[in-house]
Design a protein around this nucleic acid. Sequence first.
DNA 1: CCGATTAGTTGTACGGTTAAACATAAATGA
DNA 2: TCATTTATGTTTAACCGTACAACTAATCGG
Lengths: 418, 418
Amino acid sequence: MITHQGDEDVREDPVGSRPPSAVGGATNRSAAARQGSLREHNLALALRAILGADSPPSRAWVARATGLTRPTVSTLVDQLVRAGLIAELAPLPSQGAGRPAVPLSAAPRSVVGLGLEVNVDYIGGRVLDLTGDVVAEAVLPGEFHDASPAAVLGRLGNLARDLLASVRQEGMVPVGARLALPGLVDLRERRLRVAPNLGWSGLDPVPLLGLPDDLDVQIANEANLAGVAQLSKGGPTSFLYVSGEVGIGAAIVLDGELYLGRHGWSGEIGHVAVDPAGPRCRCGAHGCLEQYSGKDALCTAVGLPVTASAADLLDRLTREDTAARAAAARAGTALGQAVAATVNLFDVDTVLLGGLYADLADLLLPHVRAELDARVLATPWSPVDVRRAPVASHAALSGAARLALQGVLDDPGAYVTP
Amino acid sequence: MITHQGDEDVREDPVGSRPPSAVGGATNRSAAARQGSLREHNLALALRAILGADSPPSRAWVARATGLTRPTVSTLVDQLVRAGLIAELAPLPSQGAGRPAVPLSAAPRSVVGLGLEVNVDYIGGRVLDLTGDVVAEAVLPGEFHDASPAAVLGRLGNLARDLLASVRQEGMVPVGARLALPGLVDLRERRLRVAPNLGWSGLDPVPLLGLPDDLDVQIANEANLAGVAQLSKGGPTSFLYVSGEVGIGAAIVLDGELYLGRHGWSGEIGHVAVDPAGPRCRCGAHGCLEQYSGKDALCTAVGLPVTASAADLLDRLTREDTAARAAAARAGTALGQAVAATVNLFDVDTVLLGGLYADLADLLLPHVRAELDARVLATPWSPVDVRRAPVASHAALSGAARLALQGVLDDPGAYVTP
DNA sequence: CCGATTAGTTGTACGGTTAAACATAAATGA
DNA sequence: TCATTTATGTTTAACCGTACAACTAATCGG
């Protein structure tokens, strides 16, 4: 027994030290389940059932949907109602026999999540409530390449405090914030390793925001968060989201959860090699996808300055012009090759194109589809569905706010008195 | 309420219909937690703690490790002992003050898992118990390209029945079997879609084995299972395993669980494009990794027939010969490019080379490492560790047997009387 | 031999779910 | 009109599994 003498604190598993392999992680596999865990699990289950229902469900429906009994659901729902997470709506004019049900729905404007974003051409914040409604928003355009992190994050912090103050004013309770950053974000150490387009590297941006210490503020990659924003009630729950901007990022969403990898920098599709002998990339390697399908490459190919707007680029590419067609083909084909590699590796069957690619989807899609048909091994049995991402405008803000709210969905027990 | 009237059977979620996104799935997030779920969770927790301990632990140690109380652990361990999953060892000569502990360990030769494999040049079966020991094994070399599925699987079925009979004879209880196949395996529909090297396609191999109906028999990809076999007590729990043979497959293992994707055909690294303008591949596309680093390509590059053995190939490649060096460089570089893409997408920091690549590791590693250093974006902050896979001989057999046993680890409650 | 220390067990309390019965409210139909 | 049917939601008692505290068991050091 000697070897065990030292192992005192194996038992607790502080969240920070856990590898962030997924978001929305649910019940901890390696923790002891006590009595309360049961209630927490079922509370979350009932909450998800209500939020995910097509129309406001009754307690009895929730019981059927979850497999819990009606008395149990009643007590759980009562707790959710008391906590302000769920609201009882006015009974509908009754439909059929039996006692009329009390419809339940997510309580609007109760708990809210704050999404923040720093990007090359704007900073912004957005507040979402449990219904998914945007309850407050502010976006400041600007030009932040090579701007001082302290200055930019300070301004964003002011904007965030204003948003928080205004929603608190109306009685809402912010439960967390996520900051979207266009770069390699280390979740475990909460550091922005490098953001080439901002010219930033090696910093912890959270203190620079100056938000209250009691608010849970975390950081994540912009494309990953934009991917999360594509989740919607009817839509697919497993997909690859590819965001084209100056850089190209991707998010892998599986069963409604973001796949983050060991450190949180999964999905770096922009540096998948399309042609190992191709042009040199900012990252030092040769032939990265970014050199073929990034915004700069596209602009250059059609003779625009790299500072051109997405609208200009779309305009130029839409011309019936040999150069324009060639540029779209080159970018779309390269994108298709990289996406095909990703699909072969991840086995997803839906691909959503976002960011700049949402605007250019009509031009790129035929080329992307052609490459996927040729290169994805599984195509004959499960064709890959590639399409424009449904949420486009500032998607990362919504994804960040959504993820900030995730803590409530995962552990409503923390917000409820039994 | 009309819209809800029809939704009767939302509650149960038969395992077959669930997307097989991971193995070792643990407590079902979308199921109601009843009282018994608590016990099942903690039973699995205690079992994992005992199996994962460095040396046979006591009940008190398990309590500390899991966060459960000693009385609870006592009752759980008693159940595991009664079920024959855990054995109480003879007390050690006591070390220090206090009542001597009763050391616990996995019960040898109690429940066992059966791993089966059909490959181009052999069929085989292996039986593992909870300690990880091989308790029975049989391998039949042969040449199975274009052989009849019914004949080959019939022979494998005989072999499997012999193994099962012999372990049953000794009082062991087989709890399941996994069949490893070198091809695209659809887990959800339990079909082998296509196995180019066998010349097989579109079949359900399980009935052809003729195993007893009460044994849970499932199928999986050979490389995926070989990846699972690399998990060991001291080693990494998240890694990319790349298996080079005629085809090239990969397994992505995250936190000790195999990532399978939507259908179970994740990890098809052999058809990641290394050069889109490269040679045409069997799959119809151009420039797939397989055309650069597959066994056939390597053999051809050094002037051997594609039927040459791994030993011949190694022998020829090890010569101080320009052609041999060029062949190793070409294969290693291409492999490095595909692996770099995978690492950029998955964010893993360990890569294990298995199959043929285990033999060729010394020759390939420098080239692979060079490409990773150049192409993996995260290299400066988290260098990728690439090395030879620890388990080489018939790894898929061990992985399959291990996965067959996984059901016991995930749900020991099913094998225990409370 | 006695206190200190650690391992494992016994008995009671508590929290959470269940099953069964009950209360509520509407539609249905003789 | 009024009992019957149907469905929702609540109450009650029982059950199950874990926690806590106290106990026994076994060893060491003095």
